[in-house]
Amino acid sequence: MLTKWLKEVGRGKRGARDLSYEEAKDAAELILGGKATPAQIGAFFIAERIKMESVEELEAFVHVCRAHAFRAPIQKGMDCSGPYDGRKKSFFATFPTAFVLAAAGLPVTLHGSGSLPPKWGLTLQDLLLEAGIDANHASREKLVETAQATGVLYVPAEKWCPPLGELRSIRVELGMRTVLNTAEKLVDYSHSPYLLFGVFHNTVFERMAKLSERLGYERALIVQGMEGSEDLYIERPTRTYYVQNGQASMQIIDPDTYGLETLPPEVEWTAAAQIEAAEALLRGDGHLAFTNQVLLNSAVRLHLAGKADSIEQGLYLSKGLLDDGEPLALYTKWKELLR
């Protein structure tokens, strides 16, 4: 029964204790396996939120999510893990960036769902619907075939990991972050060796660095990005944590270093505005700030995955690809296959 573990994590600020990996795994199995009541699950989520999840607890929930999900070595590339609660104030640079990376020979896995608390922002699913793609009703085979043809895989998380969909109503009622807000971003549907992971608070850098190492990624970059996303800022420096071989180091990535610092325009973001901005820069007539942001994010990710020897080389490669129209061609093909 989940109440056994609820009593341990819900004893208050002083009495609560972290669960061991095995204890947390049992709790996660009860929750994701549908063996706990909504009241028990909600209480457990709130208690964990107050206590703050340990690395072992997060790892356990990730492994149980993975056990309940469809996962296959579809492509050896980069998993871009942004917030499932979406965005309200910033450009979705990771979306067009995915096609720059794919054009450079680095496959990309994107994933998400309908908007969730606490932010209730625009999600990748909203953008795809605006582009005429209903990924929730696309077959798994179609999504995989499209990824094999273009290098970009989109995963509707609640379809490929059904317990996430089954727990949505509880999360909506709670209206706050839960352990699933982190775990769902690390299901790693295509067994990617490289992880790009967005966080909101720099206080979780060390915890997420340890978690990414324990989950077996070859290299990971933890990014305190725009609205807690994996996207680097273009108007100011971004704090990141680089993780490899058990070592984590803080890196400040400053767009001014590369002559890219640009102030983005104020935009009332809708799904239509996001798609319009993304398609414009892929065509070569987008706003300079968004183009520079995609160039910087592409360069850093290519460097992380070993596709460029330096960020400078990554910028040169990314600009050449955009100028030649290869990312646009891939994006157009990707849309046609999924529509």
Score class of each variant (00 low, 15 high):
R236M: 04
G86Y: 06
A272Q: 11
A104V: 10
K88L: 06
T37C: 03
Y233E: 00
V64R: 07
P327A: 00
L128G: 01
P38C: 02
W334H: 03
Q148M: 14
V62W: 00
A308S: 04
L129C: 13
A47H: 00
A220I: 10
L338Y: 02
A67G: 02
F91A: 04
L186F: 09
S20K: 11
G114S: 13
G175E: 09
Y241G: 14
W334N: 04
L260Y: 03
E59A: 09
R66C: 01
K142T: 07
V187I: 15
P118W: 01
F61W: 14
C65F: 10
Y316C: 13
V294F: 05
A43P: 10
A60P: 00
A271P: 09
A28Y: 13
R66I: 05
T123H: 01
S212N: 07
E56I: 10
F45E: 03
L263A: 12
L221P: 05
V294G: 06
V223I: 04
A72Q: 14
S81V: 08
S249V: 13
L295W: 05
H63P: 02
Y258D: 05
E158T: 13
A131F: 06
M176L: 15
N297W: 05
L322H: 00
G105N: 01
E326I: 08
R283A: 09
Q251P: 12
V55T: 09
T332A: 15
G246V: 11
E266I: 13
I275E: 10
D134K: 09
L296E: 00
S298I: 01
A277W: 13
P118D: 04
N136A: 14
R207T: 12
K335R: 15
I170R: 01
S81K: 02
I133H: 10
A28R: 06
A16G: 11
A248K: 14
G82R: 06
R219I: 04
